[in-house]
């Protein structure tokens, strides 16, 4: 790629951060973002000029998220019960995002659903592209993304509606 790398950071940095957050949660998202862009920077000159930069970055982020999760050993540990809404993480207050309960609900999704929601709805990749990253067929990726959103709607969105009426 001949274009300055800075353009890729400016254009896709916010999306990659949201993807990392959806896959890993807010606490580990920063590490995954940093590893993703450092790795992308190294490989940038060898990337073909007509490459799909968005999909390429999400693919790298996917691998880095797995690394980061393995280091923290928590990607495959879904939260069994969605805790009370608006419970800030006392251990790391600077990472307590206003929508901490949303990320808890996302973290509680089965892994495949969480990844497909992240890569399709957050990253904006088409289902075949998502399937290429997570494995399986485009139809399965589409179903996992839809199931994930449906489950979020019934857990997080419902909690939120209820809590606003309290």
């Amino acid at each position: 790629m001949k274009r300055p790398f800075e353009q890729a950071v400016t254009e896709h940095g916010p999306m990659v951060l949201r993807v990392c957050r959806a896959v890993l949660g807010p606490t580990e998202a920063d590490d995954a973002w940093s590893e993703t862009f450092l790795s992308a920077l190294r490989a940038w000159p060898d990337l073909p000029d007509d490459a799909n930069v968005r999909a390429w970055l999400v693919t790298i982020a996917h691998r880095k998220a797995i690394d980061v999760a393995r280091a923290g050993a928590r990607l495959a540990v879904p939260v069994a019960v969605v805790p009370d809404a608006a419970a800030p993480r006392a251990d790391q207050p600077e990472d307590a995002l206003p929508d901490g309960d949303l990320w808890t609900a996302v973290a509680a999704l089965p892994e495949k659903q969480r990844l497909c929601v992240a890569y399709h709805h957050v990253a904006g990749l088409p289902h075949p592209e998502v399937a290429r990253i997570v494995g399986g067929t485009p139809a399965a990726a589409r179903r996992a993304a839809a199931d994930g959103i449906a489950r979020l709607r019934s857990t997080y969105a419902l909690e939120r509606t209820v809590s606003t009426h309290v």
């Binding site: 950071v9 951060l17 949201r18 957050r21 995002l97 949303l102 996302v106």
Partner: peptide
């Protein structure tokens, strides 16, 4: 629900500046 997941979060700009 989709919008909640895909929208930027408050404070992202500062966070991204730090990460950058």
């Amino acid at each position: 629900t989709i919008q909640l997941v895909s929208d930027p979060v408050t404070g992202d700009a500062e966070r991204l500046a730090r990460l950058h």
